[in-house]
Measured scan of single mutants.
Amino acid sequence: DLSGKLIIKAQLGEDIRRIPIHNEDITYDELVLMMQRVFRGKLLSNDEVTIKYKDEDGDLITIFDSSDLSFAIQCSRILKLTLFVNG
């Protein structure tokens, strides 16, 4: 049953990962930690990372904090994230 699940599709460069999320109350910090685990070796804990999501118009919107993240989650059951490393 995928109805209650949130799917995160995260892209870093050419690498795209699909991550099912069971807890929608994820904070921004938890998201960043999850991305560091998912992209281990490509995304380091001291990297400056910018996370953006695609909205319904196809625009890339920056996620700065947990309220941005929860808004993005409300918009779509499949959250398409693009990561930019400013390392």
Rank of each mutant, 00 (worst) to 15 (best):
S45G: 09
L31D: 00
I26W: 02
F39K: 01
D1M: 06
I61P: 02
I7R: 03
H22D: 11
T82W: 09
A10N: 01
N86S: 11
E14A: 14
T82D: 10
G41R: 05
R40F: 13
E24M: 12
Q74L: 04
E56M: 10
I19G: 00
G58A: 04
Q36W: 05
I51Q: 00
D1Y: 08
A10D: 00
T27A: 05
K80E: 15
L60N: 08
V85L: 10
F71L: 14
D55S: 15
D15S: 10
R17M: 13
L83Y: 02
R37P: 01
D55A: 15
L2K: 13
V38W: 04
D57R: 15
P20F: 08
P20A: 08
L43M: 10
L33Q: 09
K52W: 05
I78T: 11
L60C: 06
D55G: 15
L44G: 10
I51H: 02
D57Y: 14
D55F: 05
D68R: 05
L69H: 00
V49I: 05
V32H: 09
R17V: 13
V38D: 02
G58D: 04
R37C: 08
D15R: 04
V32Y: 07
L12F: 10
L44T: 09
M35V: 12
V85C: 12
N23I: 05
M34Q: 14
K80M: 13
L33P: 03
M35T: 07
V85R: 08
I78D: 15
N46W: 04
L2T: 11
I61C: 14
V85H: 11
D59W: 03
M35S: 02
K80W: 10
D15M: 13
L83F: 03
I61W: 11
R17D: 01
M35L: 10
F64Y: 13
L2Y: 14
I8C: 05
R77K: 11
Q36M: 07
I19L: 09
L79H: 08
F64S: 14
S67Q: 08
T27N: 10
K5Y: 04
P20R: 12
L60G: 04
I26G: 00
I51D: 00
K80V: 15
E56L: 12
I51E: 00
D55H: 15
V85A: 06
L2F: 14
K42S: 05
D57M: 12
K80D: 15
D15I: 14
I63D: 00
S45I: 08
G58P: 02
S66E: 03
E30A: 10
E24T: 09
N46P: 12
P20C: 14
K5G: 13
I19M: 07
K54R: 11
T62A: 07
D65I: 01
R37A: 09
F39G: 00
E24F: 11
I16T: 14
D68N: 03
I26H: 01
A10G: 02
K5D: 13
L33D: 05
D59G: 14
R40I: 13
F71N: 14
Q74I: 02
T82M: 13
V38Y: 11
F84H: 11
I61H: 15
Q74K: 11
L44K: 13
E56S: 13
P20H: 14
L2H: 08
L31E: 03
V32N: 05
S3R: 05
G13Q: 07
D68F: 02
F39M: 01
K80R: 11
D29H: 07
L43W: 09
G13N: 09
E24K: 12
N23A: 09
N86M: 04
I78A: 11
R77G: 12
D25M: 14
D1T: 04
L81P: 03
C75Y: 06
D25V: 08
L31S: 00
I63A: 01
D25A: 07
T62C: 11
D25T: 11
D1I: 07
R17E: 14
E14K: 13
A10C: 05
F84N: 08
T62M: 02
S66Q: 10
I51K: 01
A10R: 01
Y28T: 01
E30I: 02
D68T: 14
I16F: 11
I19A: 01
L2D: 03
F84C: 09
I7Y: 10
D15Q: 15
E24V: 12
Y53P: 00
K54I: 08
A10W: 00
F64N: 12
L69E: 02
N23T: 13
S67A: 13
D15H: 15
I61G: 04
K54P: 11
L31R: 01
A72M: 03
L6G: 10
